[in-house]
Amino acid sequence: MHLASHEISVGPKRSEWVVRLFTDDLEDAISASLGGTKVRLERTEGRSQAEQYVRSKLTVYRGRKALTLYMDGFTYQPDAVEIRMHVDGGLPLTVTDKLLHERFEDQRNVYFVRGPKGRLDAVSTASNPKIELR
């Protein structure tokens, strides 16, 4: 099973978001999206490549309004990369998460959400990439 994880802390004014992906999985996916170009995320262009990929695969709505994913930080480690983001406002959020689904059929993106009413868990899969957070 291939995994990635999202950790979202929902606040009244903004929701802090951390996505963690295995480095080799993400490099594979970005490389494939670039037509096979070798990708090394520890290089200077790694951050922008990773952020661009995440933006292309992750969409967030509140109702019918598409929300902007603000990229706040990027941490590279040989095992995994961490991308810190935020969206304005709190719940509800409708997330369509297709991260790495095009590469791995068994990809599961796990959500840990700490909201005003407690914790929520959810999973995005290739067959069901949509997550409703309320």
Binding site: F22, A80, D121
Partner: peptide, 18 residues
């Protein structure tokens, strides 16, 4: 541990639940 560790949440409650 090396396969799962990097993806775990930092929030202690979520971590214990996981």
């Amino acid at each position: 541990a090396k396969d799962l560790g990097p993806l775990l949440p930092s929030d202690p409650g979520a971590l214990w639940a996981a």
